[in-house]
Amino acid sequence: MSLSSHVEELKKKHQTLSTAVETLQRSPATDDLEIARLKKQKLMLKEQISKFSTH
């Protein structure tokens, strides 16, 4: 897998998590721990994207 395709895959995963977080936040029965977990995953993906994009 090339570096650019790896970065694109990370961006897709980040977007999927963003959508999931938004959906959970609009839900009346929100699970704050689940939202926090997803946000942490998003942050880790964003850091990886940033790391690979600068090289």
Results as ranks from 00 to 15, higher is better:
residue 18 S to G: 06
residue 19 T to D: 06
residue 16 T to H: 06
residue 51 K to Y: 14
residue 6 H to E: 04
residue 26 R to W: 00
residue 44 M to I: 05
residue 35 I to H: 09
residue 28 P to N: 09
residue 37 R to K: 14
residue 47 E to V: 12
residue 34 E to R: 11
residue 28 P to V: 14
residue 38 L to S: 10
residue 25 Q to M: 12
residue 37 R to I: 03
residue 53 S to R: 01
residue 48 Q to M: 14
residue 47 E to S: 10
residue 42 K to S: 09
residue 4 S to L: 15
residue 11 K to L: 09
residue 34 E to V: 10
residue 15 Q to H: 09
residue 13 K to F: 04
residue 16 T to K: 09
residue 54 T to R: 13
residue 28 P to W: 08
residue 20 A to E: 03
residue 31 D to Q: 12
residue 32 D to C: 08
residue 42 K to G: 01
residue 22 E to Y: 02
residue 35 I to V: 15
residue 25 Q to H: 02
residue 6 H to W: 05
residue 37 R to W: 02
residue 39 K to M: 14
residue 7 V to P: 11
residue 19 T to V: 13
residue 52 F to I: 09
residue 11 K to T: 01
residue 55 H to T: 02
residue 34 E to N: 07
residue 31 D to W: 04
residue 4 S to Y: 06
residue 37 R to C: 09
residue 2 S to T: 07
residue 6 H to M: 11
residue 7 V to Q: 07
residue 51 K to E: 12
residue 23 T to V: 14
residue 8 E to W: 00
residue 38 L to W: 00
residue 35 I to F: 05
residue 36 A to D: 14
residue 32 D to E: 11
residue 29 A to T: 12
residue 28 P to A: 15
residue 3 L to S: 11
residue 36 A to N: 07
residue 48 Q to R: 11
residue 4 S to K: 15
residue 54 T to F: 00
residue 5 S to R: 07
residue 49 I to L: 15
residue 50 S to I: 04
residue 18 S to V: 00
residue 3 L to C: 13
residue 43 L to N: 06
residue 28 P to D: 15
residue 2 S to H: 08
residue 12 K to R: 10
residue 44 M to T: 06
residue 49 I to Y: 05
residue 36 A to H: 08
residue 45 L to C: 06
residue 45 L to I: 02
residue 27 S to K: 01
residue 12 K to F: 03
residue 16 T to P: 01
residue 8 E to Y: 04
residue 45 L to V: 04
residue 29 A to H: 06
residue 5 S to L: 08
residue 5 S to Q: 09
residue 11 K to R: 12
residue 40 K to W: 02
residue 36 A to Q: 11
residue 36 A to F: 12
residue 34 E to K: 15
residue 30 T to K: 09
residue 6 H to P: 00
residue 22 E to G: 10
residue 10 L to T: 00
residue 11 K to D: 06
residue 45 L to Y: 00
residue 12 K to S: 08
residue 25 Q to P: 01
residue 42 K to C: 05
residue 19 T to R: 04
residue 9 E to Y: 01
residue 47 E to R: 04
residue 23 T to L: 13
residue 47 E to M: 11
residue 35 I to E: 05
residue 22 E to V: 08
residue 45 L to N: 02
residue 43 L to S: 13
residue 47 E to Y: 10
residue 49 I to E: 04
residue 39 K to L: 14
residue 9 E to V: 05
residue 31 D to H: 13
residue 55 H to A: 15
residue 26 R to N: 11
